[in-house]
Protein backbone atom coordinates (compact mmCIF):
# COMPACT_ATOMS: atom_id res chain seq x y z
CA UNK A 1 0.00 0.00 0.00
CA UNK A 2 1.39 3.36 -1.03
CA UNK A 3 1.29 6.31 1.35
CA UNK A 4 2.64 9.45 -0.27
CA UNK A 5 3.63 12.50 1.74
CA UNK A 6 3.56 15.74 -0.27
CA UNK A 7 5.17 19.01 0.78
CA UNK A 8 2.54 21.61 -0.15
CA UNK A 9 4.18 24.98 -0.66
CA UNK A 10 2.02 28.03 -0.18
CA UNK A 11 2.31 31.74 0.29
CA UNK A 12 0.24 32.93 3.27
CA UNK A 13 -2.39 30.28 2.57
CA UNK A 14 -2.39 30.44 -1.23
CA UNK A 15 -1.02 27.17 -2.61
CA UNK A 16 1.49 27.40 -5.39
CA UNK A 17 0.06 25.91 -8.57
CA UNK A 18 3.14 23.65 -8.68
CA UNK A 19 2.13 22.24 -5.27
CA UNK A 20 -1.34 21.38 -6.57
CA UNK A 21 0.28 19.70 -9.58
CA UNK A 22 2.42 17.71 -7.15
CA UNK A 23 -0.72 16.54 -5.31
CA UNK A 24 -2.03 15.42 -8.71
CA UNK A 25 1.17 13.46 -9.30
CA UNK A 26 0.82 11.85 -5.85
CA UNK A 27 -2.78 10.80 -6.55
CA UNK A 28 -1.63 9.08 -9.74
CA UNK A 29 0.54 6.74 -7.63
CA UNK A 30 -2.59 5.37 -5.88
CA UNK A 31 -2.99 4.86 -2.13
CA UNK A 32 -3.18 7.59 0.49
CA UNK A 33 -1.99 11.13 -0.04
CA UNK A 34 -0.97 13.20 2.98
CA UNK A 35 0.00 16.88 2.77
CA UNK A 36 2.59 18.52 5.02
CA UNK A 37 2.64 22.29 5.32
CA UNK A 38 4.41 25.03 7.27
CA UNK A 39 4.25 28.77 7.75
CA UNK A 40 1.48 31.33 8.21
CA UNK A 41 -1.81 30.46 6.48
CA UNK A 42 -1.17 26.71 6.58
CA UNK A 43 -4.76 25.95 7.73
CA UNK A 44 -6.20 27.60 4.60
CA UNK A 45 -3.65 25.89 2.37
CA UNK A 46 -4.40 22.54 4.05
CA UNK A 47 -8.06 22.94 3.09
CA UNK A 48 -7.01 23.61 -0.51
CA UNK A 49 -4.78 20.51 -0.39
CA UNK A 50 -7.81 18.53 0.78
CA UNK A 51 -9.78 19.79 -2.20
CA UNK A 52 -6.96 18.54 -4.44
CA UNK A 53 -6.70 14.98 -3.21
CA UNK A 54 -5.00 15.00 0.22
CA UNK A 55 -6.90 12.81 2.69
CA UNK A 56 -4.88 14.17 5.61
CA UNK A 57 -2.77 17.24 6.24
CA UNK A 58 -0.09 17.76 8.87
CA UNK A 59 0.69 21.37 9.77
CA UNK A 60 4.09 22.16 11.31
CA UNK A 61 2.87 24.70 13.82
CA UNK A 62 4.86 27.50 15.43
CA UNK A 63 8.50 27.91 14.60
CA UNK A 64 9.88 31.36 13.85
CA UNK A 65 11.65 32.38 10.65
CA UNK A 66 11.56 29.74 7.93
CA UNK A 67 14.41 27.32 8.50
CA UNK A 68 14.92 24.77 5.72
CA UNK A 69 17.01 22.35 7.77
CA UNK A 70 14.52 22.34 10.67
CA UNK A 71 11.54 21.95 8.33
CA UNK A 72 13.26 19.12 6.44
CA UNK A 73 13.91 17.26 9.67
CA UNK A 74 10.26 17.69 10.70
CA UNK A 75 8.97 16.53 7.32
CA UNK A 76 11.16 13.42 7.54
CA UNK A 77 9.79 12.73 11.03
CA UNK A 78 6.23 13.04 9.71
CA UNK A 79 7.08 10.63 6.89
CA UNK A 80 8.49 8.13 9.38
CA UNK A 81 5.50 8.41 11.73
CA UNK A 82 3.13 7.80 8.82
CA UNK A 83 5.19 4.94 7.44
CA UNK A 84 5.19 6.87 4.15
CA UNK A 85 6.44 4.92 1.15
CA UNK A 86 6.92 8.04 -0.99
CA UNK A 87 7.75 11.70 -0.48
CA UNK A 88 7.12 14.33 -3.16
CA UNK A 89 7.68 18.06 -3.49
CA UNK A 90 7.31 20.37 -6.48
CA UNK A 91 10.61 21.30 -8.14
CA UNK A 92 10.34 24.97 -7.17
CA UNK A 93 13.27 26.72 -5.49
CA UNK A 94 11.79 25.86 -2.09
CA UNK A 95 11.04 22.25 -3.07
CA UNK A 96 14.45 21.69 -4.67
CA UNK A 97 16.08 23.05 -1.51
CA UNK A 98 14.04 20.94 0.93
CA UNK A 99 13.66 17.61 -0.85
CA UNK A 100 17.34 16.53 -0.83
CA UNK A 101 17.53 17.27 2.90
CA UNK A 102 14.36 15.26 3.58
CA UNK A 103 15.68 12.41 1.42
CA UNK A 104 18.97 12.34 3.36
CA UNK A 105 17.10 12.20 6.68
CA UNK A 106 15.22 9.22 5.25
CA UNK A 107 18.52 7.81 3.91
CA UNK A 108 16.85 7.57 0.51
CA UNK A 109 17.94 8.62 -2.95
CA UNK A 110 16.12 11.53 -4.64
CA UNK A 111 14.89 11.83 -8.23
CA UNK A 112 14.76 15.53 -9.08
CA UNK A 113 12.60 17.35 -11.59
CA UNK A 114 10.54 14.34 -12.71
CA UNK A 115 8.32 14.73 -15.75
CA UNK A 116 6.26 11.60 -15.01
CA UNK A 117 5.72 9.20 -12.12
CA UNK A 118 4.01 5.82 -12.18
CA UNK A 119 3.17 2.87 -10.00
CA UNK A 120 3.86 -0.36 -11.88
CA UNK A 121 2.55 -3.19 -9.76
CA UNK A 122 3.69 -1.57 -6.54
CA UNK A 123 7.07 -0.44 -7.89
CA UNK A 124 7.29 3.33 -8.23
CA UNK A 125 8.96 4.66 -11.37
CA UNK A 126 10.38 8.12 -11.97
CA UNK A 127 10.87 9.58 -15.43
CA UNK A 128 13.42 12.37 -15.51
CA UNK A 129 15.71 14.15 -17.93
CA UNK A 130 19.47 13.72 -18.07
CA UNK A 131 21.77 16.21 -19.80
CA UNK A 132 18.95 18.77 -19.69
CA UNK A 133 16.60 16.49 -21.58
CA UNK A 134 18.95 15.13 -24.24
CA UNK A 135 18.08 11.72 -22.73
CA UNK A 136 15.16 10.52 -20.63
CA UNK A 137 15.78 8.07 -17.77
CA UNK A 138 13.22 5.74 -16.22
CA UNK A 139 14.38 4.95 -12.70
CA UNK A 140 13.37 2.94 -9.67
CA UNK A 141 14.71 3.10 -6.13
CA UNK A 142 15.85 0.37 -3.74
CA UNK A 143 15.67 2.92 -0.92
CA UNK A 144 13.25 2.86 2.01
CA UNK A 145 11.23 5.87 0.77
CA UNK A 146 10.73 6.84 -2.88
CA UNK A 147 11.66 10.55 -2.96
CA UNK A 148 11.10 12.80 -5.97
CA UNK A 149 10.45 16.36 -7.04
CA UNK A 150 7.95 17.06 -9.82
CA UNK A 151 8.70 19.44 -12.68
CA UNK A 152 6.51 22.52 -12.81
CA UNK A 153 3.86 22.52 -15.60
CA UNK A 154 4.27 18.76 -16.15
CA UNK A 155 1.39 17.33 -14.09
CA UNK A 156 -2.31 18.22 -14.16
CA UNK A 157 -4.12 19.92 -11.29
CA UNK A 158 -7.00 17.69 -10.16
CA UNK A 159 -9.70 19.28 -8.07
CA UNK A 160 -11.43 16.47 -6.16
CA UNK A 161 -13.45 18.68 -3.81
CA UNK A 162 -12.47 16.51 -0.84
CA UNK A 163 -11.60 17.62 2.67
CA UNK A 164 -8.39 16.80 4.53
CA UNK A 165 -8.29 15.71 8.16
CA UNK A 166 -5.90 18.31 9.57
CA UNK A 167 -3.55 17.75 12.49
CA UNK A 168 -0.77 19.87 13.98
CA UNK A 169 2.74 19.03 15.01
CA UNK A 170 5.07 21.46 16.77
CA UNK A 171 7.80 22.73 14.44
CA UNK A 172 11.46 22.35 15.40
CA UNK A 173 13.24 25.61 16.15
CA UNK A 174 16.86 24.45 16.16
CA UNK A 175 17.68 25.19 12.50
CA UNK A 176 21.19 26.28 11.55
CA UNK A 177 19.84 28.19 8.54
CA UNK A 178 17.17 30.88 8.73
CA UNK A 179 15.47 32.91 6.03
CA UNK A 180 15.62 36.48 7.35
CA UNK A 181 14.18 38.45 4.46
CA UNK A 182 12.63 38.44 1.02
CA UNK A 183 12.96 41.22 -1.54
CA UNK A 184 9.72 40.45 -3.37
CA UNK A 185 9.48 40.75 -7.14
CA UNK A 186 7.20 43.32 -8.67
CA UNK A 187 3.74 41.99 -7.99
CA UNK A 188 2.29 39.91 -10.77
CA UNK A 189 5.69 39.22 -12.33
CA UNK A 190 5.83 35.54 -13.17
CA UNK A 191 8.94 33.40 -12.98
CA UNK A 192 10.08 31.96 -16.29
CA UNK A 193 9.98 28.40 -14.87
CA UNK A 194 6.37 28.72 -13.72
CA UNK A 195 4.66 30.82 -16.37
CA UNK A 196 2.24 29.10 -18.80
CA UNK A 197 3.57 31.33 -21.61
CA UNK A 198 7.23 32.24 -22.12
CA UNK A 199 8.53 34.80 -24.62
CA UNK A 200 12.29 34.42 -24.94
CA UNK A 201 14.80 36.56 -26.75
CA UNK A 202 18.31 36.26 -28.08
CA UNK A 203 20.90 38.24 -29.98
CA UNK A 204 18.44 38.84 -32.81
CA UNK A 205 16.85 41.56 -30.67
CA UNK A 206 19.99 43.60 -31.33
CA UNK A 207 20.42 45.47 -28.03
CA UNK A 208 19.09 45.64 -24.45
CA UNK A 209 16.77 48.56 -25.25
CA UNK A 210 15.03 46.87 -28.17
CA UNK A 211 14.85 43.63 -26.12
CA UNK A 212 12.17 45.46 -24.11
CA UNK A 213 9.63 44.79 -26.91
CA UNK A 214 9.42 41.31 -25.37
CA UNK A 215 8.33 42.83 -22.05
CA UNK A 216 5.44 44.40 -23.96
CA UNK A 217 4.58 41.13 -25.69
CA UNK A 218 4.62 39.32 -22.31
CA UNK A 219 2.39 42.04 -20.82
CA UNK A 220 -0.09 41.62 -23.70
CA UNK A 221 -0.46 37.92 -22.80
CA UNK A 222 -0.97 38.74 -19.13
CA UNK A 223 0.24 35.27 -18.04
CA UNK A 224 3.66 35.30 -19.69
CA UNK A 225 7.22 35.60 -18.40
CA UNK A 226 10.24 36.82 -20.31
CA UNK A 227 13.12 34.41 -20.93
CA UNK A 228 16.55 34.96 -22.43
CA UNK A 229 19.27 33.02 -24.24
CA UNK A 230 22.66 32.48 -22.65
CA UNK A 231 24.26 34.91 -25.10
CA UNK A 232 22.19 37.88 -23.95
CA UNK A 233 22.55 36.98 -20.27
CA UNK A 234 26.33 36.70 -20.65
CA UNK A 235 26.28 40.06 -22.43
CA UNK A 236 24.52 41.55 -19.39
CA UNK A 237 21.27 42.46 -21.20
CA UNK A 238 19.10 40.36 -18.92
CA UNK A 239 19.48 38.75 -15.45
CA UNK A 240 20.46 35.10 -15.08
CA UNK A 241 17.09 34.42 -13.41
CA UNK A 242 15.57 34.70 -16.91
CA UNK A 243 18.07 32.41 -18.68
CA UNK A 244 16.55 29.35 -20.36
CA UNK A 245 18.85 26.44 -21.19
CA UNK A 246 21.24 23.87 -19.84
CA UNK A 247 23.00 26.44 -17.63
CA UNK A 248 19.80 28.32 -16.83
CA UNK A 249 16.25 27.17 -16.25
CA UNK A 250 14.54 24.25 -17.90
CA UNK A 251 11.01 25.34 -18.78
CA UNK A 252 7.96 23.58 -20.11
CA UNK A 253 5.22 26.18 -20.72
CA UNK A 254 2.11 25.63 -22.85
CA UNK A 255 3.44 28.17 -25.32
CA UNK A 256 7.07 29.15 -25.92
CA UNK A 257 7.91 31.95 -28.32
CA UNK A 258 11.60 32.14 -29.29
CA UNK A 259 12.53 35.49 -30.79
CA UNK A 260 15.89 36.09 -32.42
CA UNK A 261 17.21 32.84 -30.93
CA UNK A 262 19.15 30.60 -33.31
CA UNK A 263 18.52 27.39 -31.36
CA UNK A 264 21.87 26.30 -29.96
CA UNK A 265 21.71 22.84 -28.33
CA UNK A 266 22.39 24.52 -24.97
CA UNK A 267 19.20 26.58 -25.29
CA UNK A 268 17.04 23.91 -26.91
CA UNK A 269 17.75 21.56 -24.00
CA UNK A 270 15.98 24.04 -21.74
CA UNK A 271 12.73 24.45 -23.68
CA UNK A 272 12.08 21.57 -26.05
CA UNK A 273 9.38 19.94 -23.93
CA UNK A 274 7.20 23.07 -24.22
CA UNK A 275 3.66 22.48 -25.48
CA UNK A 276 3.69 24.68 -28.58
CA UNK A 277 6.84 26.35 -29.86
CA UNK A 278 6.88 29.44 -32.06
CA UNK A 279 10.08 30.78 -33.62
CA UNK A 280 10.62 34.25 -35.06
CA UNK A 281 13.99 34.65 -36.74
CA UNK A 282 15.29 36.46 -39.78
CA UNK A 283 17.54 33.53 -40.73
CA UNK A 284 15.35 30.92 -42.45
CA UNK A 285 18.07 28.31 -41.85
CA UNK A 286 18.24 28.83 -38.06
CA UNK A 287 18.09 25.44 -36.26
CA UNK A 288 15.24 26.73 -34.05
CA UNK A 289 12.87 26.32 -37.03
CA UNK A 290 13.49 22.54 -37.00
CA UNK A 291 12.02 22.42 -33.50
CA UNK A 292 9.25 25.00 -33.85
CA UNK A 293 5.63 24.12 -34.55
CA UNK A 294 5.14 27.51 -36.21
CA UNK A 295 7.74 29.84 -37.61
CA UNK A 296 7.84 33.36 -38.98
CA UNK A 297 10.89 34.35 -40.99
CA UNK A 298 11.44 38.02 -40.41
CA UNK A 299 12.99 40.81 -38.38
CA UNK A 300 11.97 40.55 -34.73
CA UNK A 301 11.70 44.33 -34.48
CA UNK A 302 8.93 44.30 -37.11
CA UNK A 303 7.19 41.05 -36.23
CA UNK A 304 7.03 41.36 -32.43
CA UNK A 305 5.17 44.71 -32.24
CA UNK A 306 2.61 43.38 -34.75
CA UNK A 307 2.25 40.20 -32.70
CA UNK A 308 1.85 42.24 -29.50
CA UNK A 309 -1.03 44.21 -31.08
CA UNK A 310 -2.66 41.01 -32.34
CA UNK A 311 -2.43 39.35 -28.90
CA UNK A 312 -3.93 42.47 -27.30
CA UNK A 313 -6.83 42.25 -29.77
CA UNK A 314 -7.35 38.53 -28.98
CA UNK A 315 -7.29 39.18 -25.22
CA UNK A 316 -9.69 42.15 -25.60
CA UNK A 317 -12.20 39.78 -27.24
CA UNK A 318 -11.87 37.56 -24.16
Amino acid sequence: MTTTLVFVEHNDGTCRRAALECLGAAASLGGDVVAVLCGPGSADAAARAGAHGAAKAVVLAGGDAFSPDAVAKDIAAVAQDLGATAFLAAATSRGKDLAPRVAAHLDSVLFSDCTALSNEGGALHATRPWLAGKAIAHCTSDGPVFCATTRVNSFPVNETGGAAEVSERPASTDGKVKVTGLAAKESGKLDVAEAPVVVSGGRGLKDPETFAILDELAAAFGNAAVGASRAVVDAGWRPHSEQVGQTGKVVSPNLYIAVGISGAIQHVAGMKTSGTIVAINKDADAPIFKLADYGIVGDALEVVPALTEAIKAVKAQG
Binding site: F289, L291, G295, I296, V297, D299, E302
Partner: peptide, 12 residues
Protein backbone atom coordinates in the same frame (compact mmCIF):
# COMPACT_ATOMS: atom_id res chain seq x y z
CA UNK B 1 6.35 22.27 -37.84
CA UNK B 2 5.90 24.79 -40.61
CA UNK B 3 6.78 28.35 -41.55
CA UNK B 4 3.53 30.32 -41.52
CA UNK B 5 4.95 33.25 -43.45
CA UNK B 6 7.39 36.12 -43.77
CA UNK B 7 7.57 39.28 -41.67
CA UNK B 8 4.80 41.12 -39.85
CA UNK B 9 2.28 40.09 -42.54
CA UNK B 10 2.46 36.52 -41.21
CA UNK B 11 1.12 37.46 -37.78
CA UNK B 12 -2.58 36.81 -38.61
Amino acid sequence: GRIVGQGADAVP
